[in-house]
């Protein structure tokens, strides 16, 4: 893609904003439209855009496959871990009301439900980002065979 300076420069300009938007969608998801699924997909599309323009090696330096691979499982672990945590605190699986003692009002998490939803959406976001990026790696890394 080195032959297209306009594409390279516009991509460089756009990617920070796409990533920022993904974080906004992730962490603002309980106040406006958004959440883990959307944020994960948007974040992954920023990474994929970088990979498309600058090549697979460049993006794999930024997000090494070995890390992304771990993140795929990490997200589900965070999600299920939240459920286990609520059980350990004496509630039912994914019963966020028992997280009431651990809320952080200064971070706009004023109740157990808010905290639980925040953690769960985080898990979803991590898994979706990692899976989408990894699928792109798998397709892009494959050589054409005749």
């Amino acid at each position: 893609m080195s032959a297209f300076p306009i594409i390279r420069i516009i991509t460089k300009l756009l990617i920070p904003y796409i990533l920022l938007f993904a974080f906004y969608v992730q962490f603002h998801g309980d106040y406006g439209p958004g959440g883990g699924f959307q944020a994960g997909v948007i974040f992954a599309s920023a990474l994929i855009l970088y990979g498309l323009v600058f090549g697979l090696e460049a993006i794999q330096r930024v997000a090494p496959p070995i890390v992304i691979e771990k993140c795929m499982a990490l997200g589900v672990l965070v999600y299920a871990g939240t459920g286990i945590l609520t059980m350990a605190l004496g509630g039912r699986f994914l019963d966020y009301n028992v997280l009431e003692h651990h809320v952080l009002p200064q971070w706009h998490i004023p109740s157990g439900q808010h905290l639980g939803i925040f953690l769960v959406e985080m898990g979803v976001g991590i898994t979706v980002t990692a899976v989408m990026t990894m699928i792109f790696y798998a397709f892009a890394g494959r050589k054409q065979t005749q």
């Binding site: 959440g35 699924f37 959307q38 994960g40 997909v41 899976v131 699928i135 397709f139």
Partner: peptide, 12 residues
């Protein structure tokens, strides 16, 4: 919402 993301994963 969840179906769309699962859908793209299965399409892949």
């Amino acid at each position: 919402l969840t179906a769309i993301v699962v859908g793209i994963a299965t399409t892949a």
